[in-house]
Amino acid sequence: MSVHITKTYNIGGLIGLRQNAVRNAAETLGYKEMSLFKFPDQYDTDAELHVRMDGIISALCPNDVVIFQHPSGESPRYDNFLFDHIRMYAETKIIAFVQEIASQRENSEYTLENEIELLNRADMFIFASETVRDYYMKNGLIEKPFIIQTVADYMTDILVTEHTQEKIYILAESNSENYSNVPINIDVIPYDEYHATEIILKISDGGMGLIWDFDEQALGIYMAAGIPVIVKKGLPCEKYVVDNKIGIVVEDYNEVYKISVSATKDSIKPYYDSVKKIQKLFTNGIYTKKLLLDALIMVREKL
């Protein structure tokens, strides 16, 4: 039995960076990459796309497990062709690792109906959060074995422990996102899978990382960079942040502003110290490795 994990190339951004984080951890466990490539597949005939899929799954054997990272960045047609070809092998299991709601992405080729149709073809799920699972379940997803990803990490050889700056960072899909109406100076860092090392180094200069939406990958990047966080109340990572004393929970930007003008090195130091205790868990991908092993155990025990 082999375990395969999908990784889409030519995609970049948050999707690419997040897939890299999971793929990198998976490879240390001996899981095999199943490489996809983003291209305008509408120009391929069905026969041509079938040929591509034959190449993609060439290492697949009966009884193997495939972890499909969703969204893949591909079209619904491409993803369904991939599932068709995986299903040609007897007793092969598909674990759909659902990292965000694809149909809610700007310019997505997916509708919610497309997503539900594809995901219902999987045998098991890993969800990025309970919130993501609840949304799909309310919209027609079939009940199947699942695991919730409690923490997203990011493997890196970088380990910075000295921080001199006092900036507020936020990770975003692009640096053009507008924070001009926010009463603080925020350093917007665009997600970029091709420059993840540079992102971590820049953030590790020092300060605090802002987590303001349901993107859990931000926590992994901030922890890898070694800086504490400010998290909006109600987000899935709130409990982890509070339990591990690695940051501050706030209600709105006004509270962020108060922190930015009143925080001192002495007041922030305890958070830095707490981050330092768990930083290597993130830089070594320990949380993701455990998640992937738990998923493998579950798929073999329950299916």
Rank of each mutant, 00 (worst) to 15 (best):
K280M: 08
R105K: 13
K239W: 09
G140I: 05
M298V: 02
F97Q: 00
L60A: 05
E173N: 14
I147T: 05
T131N: 12
D123W: 04
P190F: 07
R87A: 14
T288S: 14
D79F: 12
P71Q: 13
I200Q: 02
I297C: 06
N20R: 11
D213E: 01
Q42T: 06
M155Q: 12
V231D: 00
E91H: 15
Q165E: 15
L36M: 06
D213H: 08
L292I: 15
E301F: 04
I221E: 00
P71Y: 00
N80D: 07
K202R: 15
P40S: 10
V231L: 01
Y78S: 07
L112E: 01
E113N: 10
L281H: 11
K202A: 10
E27F: 09
L17S: 06
S176I: 14
R105T: 08
Y179R: 08
D252C: 12
H163C: 08
E106L: 13
M298S: 11
S260A: 09
P270L: 09
K280T: 13
Y194V: 03
S58Y: 03
T264L: 06
A26K: 09
I67H: 00
S174V: 13
S262L: 15
S2F: 15
H195A: 12
G140W: 10
E115F: 07
T111Q: 07
Q104Y: 14
P228I: 04
M208G: 00
R105M: 03
F81W: 08
Q217C: 06
K289I: 10
P62A: 03
E166H: 15
K38V: 00
E91I: 08
S180H: 06
E115Y: 13
R121I: 10
F81I: 03
L291V: 02
K289C: 11
F97N: 00
Y222K: 02
L141W: 00
H70A: 12
P228S: 07
Y287G: 00
P190Y: 15
Y154H: 15
V160M: 05
